[in-house]
Amino acid sequence: MIRGVILVIIGAVAAPLLGGLIAGVDRRLTAWLQSRYGPPIWQPFFDVIKLFGKERLVVNGWQVFCAHVYITATMLSVVLFFLQSDLLLILFVQAFGAIFLVIGAFSTTSPYSQVGANRELIQILTYEPLIVLVFVGIYLVTGSFKISEILAQTKPLLVSLPLLYIVLCYALTIKLRKSPFDFSTSHHAHQELVKGFLTEYSGRYLALVEIGHWYEVVLILGLCSLFWATSWIGVLVLVGVTYLCEILIDNIMARMTWQWMLGYVWTMGLAMSFVNLIWLHGR
């Protein structure tokens, strides 16, 4: 029981701190790759705190509503992750937040927001089936969708699910909104169509969305860490290398179109999942 409470607190409090830190490191490394000095590592926290200190400026009440629902759902999904709950349930709860964020963007008539919302829906459409298939792969290895069962494994999942890990990385890239998949919104100065579906969120509501995004980053990186959950070093190495690759890809790739993303990611993702799942089936 006490362990559960501690895990809930870790999920609810430590996760966004970690997410913010990751975002800070990300900006620093990106700056390094562009031979710049870059902002301090704590920069994302300064940004969010500043946003909280700003005036409330709204287009309508729905955005406010949706931003709060979004952060609740993302927080819940991370807490469920730390409670070692069911993978599919976690995905669905996360989808709840993502969908409400899109609905909030749809609720304003701003063309930027509308375009962003449509594109975000395409991004959700692209990564959701892939994540489900990754979970199926995990199920075929462990016989369960519960994270607690995965942690009981003695062999890293990566050994039997290498291709599905790559598929998960596609989903991670989309979810992190990194190039070449950053067209619903984009980080800092990339601003795809003046920041896509975030256009009309401002001040503290933008801050809520940002914190929600940190939760999501932690969740997806957490999913990555499950692939080498047998040792802490493994987790650190795997997640670190994966994230470094993400930053590298972000910096060397150009933004593509959504048609390309849907076609490419589905083709590659489904093909790799199929191959990997058939291996497992064959055993």
Binding site: V58, V59, W62, V64, H68, V69, T72
Partner: peptide, 30 residues
């Protein structure tokens, strides 16, 4: 548990949206 947390979040979101009615409004960005 999921219903409970989401319901709490939902209620708070409604409250926040009500509170935001007093906030300054501004049209969409054009």
């Amino acid at each position: 548990p999921v219903i409970l947390v989401l319901a709490l979040g939902f209620i708070y979101a409604v409250y926040a949206a009500k509170k935001a009615q007093k906030a300054r409004t501004s049209g969409p960005y054009l």
